[in-house]
């Protein structure tokens, strides 16, 4: 058996975000953030070919201030289709602001916003929705007095003439939910009021993916859930990515992050200190990145 190597010699430096020189646009389009960043970092290797798909979401050089308070500084962020990208950082590191920039709720002051490779302008939530970017906020915004089907289609009801096409909506709702392998929902005609927290989260997620979305951002989906429900939600998150969506997961819980993510993006005081593959890092490194912005070769240059 191969002896287990220590963390030091087993570790190879990857990905530096800050300070990496931007490549000419034409080249950068065909590369991943990783390939690009690795070249900037010098010592690291290129990513394997499988990863060289165009990121669904590609933000570069994002600046955002609220008045005189600078919240995001030169942030780069990517989310790839088929992957869960975890966005981690301490309170006040700028996670929520970055999500608001992505969702068009507070557009960034400066920076480049690319969606599936082409530059776009996302100035309002409506713009984001039109591109296929859905955000599931922490407060799920469901109507408790309506049932699951009614909530899934709220504001986008299917009609047949003047009346609602209940049958088509119910069928679509059921196929979406079973596509997420949700087995625990007794009936799609239950009112939201009768559902548990985890089930509500599931409905909120299902609503986000019902419309052929490309990118789904989940803001702390497991906050305020019990263990069993958290696990269920995590598995649904994973399934979304396996179906080809680009999923961005914001979470404080390192276990959740490591359980489902493919990449981890760490924010520290408004800067993106590292965007790395989950398979390449350890718990300790991510915790160090979150708390001090640097961990060994990773993170901010001293």
């Amino acid at each position: 058996m191969t002896p287990v190597r220590g963390a030091e010699d087993g570790w190879e430096p990857v990905a530096r975000t800050i300070g990496s020189p931007a490549l000419p646009g034409g080249v950068a389009d065909t590369l991943t953030d990783h390939g690009r960043l690795a070249r900037g970092g010098g010592a690291a290797r290129w990513e394997p070919l499988g990863m060289s798909v165009t990121p669904a979401l590609d933000l570069r050089g994002i600046d955002k201030s609220y008045g005189s308070v600078k919240v995001l500084h030169d942030v780069a962020f990517c989310a790839h289709p088929g992957e869960v990208t975890a966005l981690v950082g301490d309170n006040g590191a700028g996670k929520t602001t970055l999500v608001k920039c992505i969702g068009g709720i507070h557009p960034p002051d400066r920076g480049e916003y690319r969606f599936e490779g082409r530059p776009v302008r996302v100035g309002s939530p409506r713009d984001a929705a039109r591109l296929g970017i859905e955000i599931v906020h922490q407060d799920l915004a469901l109507c408790e007095n309506l049932d699951i089907v009614q909530n899934l289609f709220l504001g986008r009801e299917r009609r047949r003439g003047l009346a609602l096409d209940e049958a088509a909506m119910e069928e679509m709702a059921r196929s979406t939910l079973s596509g997420l392998a949700v087995r625990t929902m007794g009936s799609v005609r239950q009112r939201i009021a009768t559902l548990s927290g985890g089930q509500r989260q599931t409905v909120a997620i299902a609503r986000a993916v019902l419309w052929d979305s490309k990118v789904v951002v989940l803001d702390e989906p497991a906050a305020a859930l019990g263990v069993a429900q958290t696990q269920q939600v995590l598995e649904i998150v994973r399934r979304l990515a396996d179906r080809g969506l680009a999923v961005v997961l914001i979470s404080h819980n390192m276990n959740d992050v490591f359980a489902v993510s493919d990449r981890i993006a760490a924010l520290y005081l408004g800067r993106m200190v590292a965007q790395v593959r989950t398979a390449d890092v350890t718990h300790r490194q991510i915790v160090e990145l979150i708390t001090s912005g640097v961990s060994g070769e990773l993170g901010l240059r001293r």
Binding site: C143, G155, R156
Partner: peptide, 24 residues
């Protein structure tokens, strides 16, 4: 019971913020 308008009335009555975010 059968129109989108009616559905929206229930939605606003149940959770106005949710209805607003749903584009109503």
């Amino acid at each position: 019971g059968r129109t989108a308008y009616g559905r929206h009335i229930y939605a606003v009555g149940g959770n106005a913020e949710a209805a607003r975010r749903a584009g109503i």
